[in-house]
């Protein structure tokens, strides 16, 4: 056992997920399995290897400071569950 139910609850909180007790147990099993797989990777000797910042060997992809067309307002709000005064209306935050 790498992690406990407490860790599962913490990760669920960070992810804004509500889990039932059964789901928590199920997630605990799943997460521990994933962590076991990670253990395999941890056995590889990586001393002297730089951490990877990107999967491709590229860098400095930049664009010039130029304006491009914005999205029409109707399209911006097209998928908004609720809107008010041209803004996205979101439920109670805290």
């Amino acid at each position: 056992m790498k992690i406990s139910i407490k860790d599962v609850e913490y990760v669920a909180l960070l992810s804004r997920l509500e889990l039932t007790d059964e789901e928590k147990v199920e997630q605990l099993r799943e997460l521990n399995k994933i962590l076991d797989s990670m253990e395999v990777l941890n056995k590889v000797d990586t001393s002297g290897v730089e951490p990877l910042a990107h999967v491709l060997p590229i860098h400095n992809v930049l664009r010039e400071d130029e304006l491009r067309a914005t999205l029409p307002k109707e399209k911006v709000l097209q998928n908004a569950p609720e809107e008010d005064e041209g803004m996205f209306k979101v439920p109670k935050i805290v």
Binding site: L67, R68, A69, T70, L71, K73, V76, L77, G86
Partner: peptide
């Protein structure tokens, strides 16, 4: 490439990238 201008009618200085729509690719402004 959306304008940075202060003010403006709400949600008019936006595009799929700054709205974080799926599948878009951000590129850093030099």
């Amino acid at each position: 490439g959306c304008p940075t201008e202060f003010g403006g009618e709400p949600n008019t200085h936006v595009c799929p990238i700054c709205l974080g729509l799926p599948g878009v690719l951000p590129v850093l402004n030099k």
